[in-house]
Design a protein around this nucleic acid. Structure first.
Lengths: 337, 337
DNA sequence: TTGTACGCGTTATCAA
DNA sequence: TTGATAACGCGTACAA
C-alpha cells in the first residue's frame, strides 16, 4: 500500500501538498501541481490508511451495531427474520451515508462498551437492551447512542429510542379477535420484559375492556433455544385445546406454532386462530397467510440509523420516535360468531 | 479515553512498563509494579486505541465480510434466509476468534477492494462473486481471501473456496423425483451462473440419464426484484400446468412458488411437486414441509471463517472445501407412479 | 528492572 | 503556493 509520504517523495513535493489535493483543498494549490498529483494518485491507485486518519482526526466513520443477546437467543439471533431485516435496513443506510458498519453481538453490556471505545466508533446502534443495561451504558459512554425497541424506565431520560407503540399493536389485534367472537385468547412469548411486556399489556387491556378475565395460565411460554423449542412447542400444543385463539408476540413464533399444530392435526384457523406480530417474510409466505400486526422493520432500521447520524452531526432529534403499526388481516384468524 | 502515556505519567513510570504489563510481558517487570499498574488499569478502565495499535503493528484484527450483490438482489440481500444464516455463522466464529467483523455490501468489486485496503483488514470473506470478478481481485490484493460458493474457471487457481457439490445435490433430488414417476420437471432460478449453473447442470444430467429430453422452456426464470417478483411468479404459475414437478434453486424460491400456486388454487404436491435447495428455516416451517437438499449453511460460514483464520496464521489449508449435501425428504414431492 | 526514542500514515499548524 | 514539523496512541528495539 502506497503512502502519502512515498508519493510526496516520488513527486518531489511535501506531504502537505499531496494531502491537500486529496482533500480537494484546491484553493491553496496551483493548477499545475493539482494535475500532477491527481494523475499520480490514479496511477498508483492510492488508498488512504483509515487507521492513521482516525488516529489523527479522532473519529472513525464507524457505526457500531451492537446486538445484545439473551442467553437463550444467542445461537441464532441473526436467523430471526425480524433481526435480519432490521440489519438489512441498518446496513443499507450506514453504507449510503459513507460510514462503515461494525457488527457485534454479545450478552455482556460491558463487553459491548469496551468494543465501542476501543474502536472509537462515532456512534452506536443498540438493539436488545433491557431495563438496567441501559443505565450502565450511558454513564461510561459519551458518543451518540440510538436504541431500537428498548423499554427502560430510567433509560427514557438518557437515550433516544426508535420503537413502536407495541401496546396499541396487540391491543388492536386482540380487539379484532374479540370482535370476531374469540373469548379465550392465549398470549405466546418467551418472556415478559421490554417489548414483550408492552405487547402483553396491550393484550391484557383488550381482554379487560371486553370484560374477559385474564387467567394466569393463558400465558404460554415458549423456549427459543434450538434444542428445546420443539419440546416447549409440544407442551404448548397440548394446552391449546379450549383456546379460541393465540396472540403470538412475533411472526416467527406464530409460524412455528402453526406448523406444530398442523403436525398434530390441529388446523389453523378452523380449530384455533393465531395472530403474529411484525409482518415478516415468514408470515407473508406462509399458507394460510398470517394475520399479523405490521411494522416496517427495514424502515425502523433506516430511521434509527438516520437519527443516529443526525446526532453525530450535532443536529437536534426527538427523544422518542415511534414507527406506526397496522393490522394486516389475512387468513389465520377466523370469524367464529 | 485514557492513554498509556497518561497512565505512565500518573504512576510515575514509563510507557514501556505499562505496555509490558498490559501485554503480560511480566518476566521483565517486578511483581510490585505489576500490581500497581494492574490495579490502576482496572480503576481507570483502560481501553487501548485500536487505531493506534493497528498503525503501529500493521494489522487490524478485522475480518472483512463482503457480499457482492447483483443489481436485482441488492435491496434485500440480508433478508434472504440463506444469507442471514450464513452471516450468523460467520459472525459467531469471527467473534469467538477475537476478531472483528466489518460487513460490506456492494455491487462493485473495486469498491470492495478499496474498502478492504483502506481498513487494512487481515483477511477477506467473499460471497456472491462470479467468474471474472475474482480475477480482478486477486491481482490487487495480497491478504488472504476465502470465497464462499464461488465458481470460477480461472479463480480456482487463485482462491480458496468453500462450497458444495451443487451439481450432485440437484442431480440426486431430480433423480429422486424421477424415481417417483415425475417426467416433465422444470427448473426455477433467477439466473444460470455460478452456483445456479452447477445446480442446473445436475438437474439436466439427471434428466438425460433417465432418457428425458430437456426442453428449453423447462427453465423458469424468476425475477427477485421485490417489485417484479409477483409479476414473474404470476407468469410462472401460468406455465406450471403440464409440469409434474419443479426443481427450485433455493428454498426461498420454492416457498414463494408454493404460496403463489396456492393462491391460484394449484395444490402442492397434489397438482405439482416442488423441491427446494438449502434447507432453510423457511422450508422447515412451511406446511406441507418442503422436500429439499440440505446443506449446513451456518456450518459453511464457520468453516469459511476458520479456513480464513488458518491462512492468516500462515497455516496450510486445502484449496477447495466441499460441505456435504443431503436429501431431505418431506412432503412437497409426491409419488405419482 | 525501567526508561528513551522512534516509527506507523495521516492531518493540521505555522512558517517560508 | 508550498514545505517542515508536531501530534495522534501504541509497541518495541535498544539503552541505561
Amino acid at each position: 500500500m502506497i503512502t502519502i509520504k512515498e508519493i510526496a517523495k516520488q513527486l518531489n513535493m511535501s506531504t502537505t501538498t499531496v494531502s491537500n489535493v486529496i482533500h480537494g483543498k484546491t484553493g491553496e494549490v496551483s493548477d499545475a501541481t493539482i494535475k500532477i498529483v491527481e494523475d499520480y494518485l490514479k496511477k498508483v491507485d492510492y488508498v488512504p490508511n483509515i487507521n492513521a486518519r482516525n488516529l489523527a482526526q479522532n473519529e472513525s466513520k464507524i457505526i457500531g451495531v451492537a446486538l445484545k443477546a439473551r442467553a437463550d437467543k444467542y445461537e441464532n439471533l441473526l436467523m430471526d427474520p425480524f433481526v435480519s431485516e432490521l440489519i438489512g435496513g441498518i446496513e443499507e443506510s450506514i453504507r449510503k451515508a459513507g460510514y462503515f458498519m461494525m457488527l457485534y453481538i454479545s450478552r455482556d453490556t460491558d463487553e459491548i462498551m469496551r468494543h465501542v471505545s476501543t474502536w472509537n466508533v462515532d456512534g452506536l446502534l443498540l438493539f436488545g437492551m433491557l431495563n438496567d443495561d441501559g443505565i450502565r451504558v450511558s454513564e461510561r459512554y459519551k458518543k451518540p447512542i440510538v436504541c431500537i425497541d428498548t423499554y427502560s424506565i430510567e433509560g427514557l431520560k438518557h437515550f433516544i429510542n426508535v420503537g413502536l407503540d407495541d401496546e396499541k399493536g396487540t391491543f388492536e389485534m386482540v380487539n379484532y379477535m374479540i370482535s370476531l367472537g374469540h373469548k379465550k385468547i392465549a398470549f405466546l412469548s418467551d418472556n415478559l420484559n421490554g417489548v414483550d411486556y408492552a405487547r402483553f399489556s396491550g393484550y391484557k387491556r383488550a381482554l379487560s375492556e371486553a370484560g374477559i378475565e385474564f387467567q394466569k395460565d393463558w400465558f404460554l411460554k415458549i423456549n427459543p433455544r434450538s434444542k428445546e423449542v420443539q419440546a416447549s412447542l409440544e407442551d404448548i400444543c397440548k394446552k391449546i385445546t379450549g383456546f379460541d385463539a393465540v396472540m403470538c408476540v412475533s411472526d416467527l413464533y406464530a409460524v412455528q406454532l402453526i406448523s406444530s399444530l398442523n403436525d398434530r392435526g390441529i388446523r389453523v384457523p378452523e380449530d384455533v386462530s393465531v395472530a403474529g406480530f411484525d409482518d415478516t417474510l415468514l408470515g407473508q409466505l406462509h399458507r394460510p397467510a398470517l394475520t399479523t400486526v405490521h411494522q416496517d422493520v427495514k424502515g425502523k432500521g433506516i430511521v434509527a440509523t438516520e437519527t443516529l447520524l443526525k446526532c453525530i452531526r450535532g443536529e437536534k432529534t426527538p427523544k422518542q420516535i415511534q414507527i406506526p403499526t397496522k393490522l394486516v388481516i389475512r387468513d389465520t384468524v377466523m370469524d367464529i360468531r
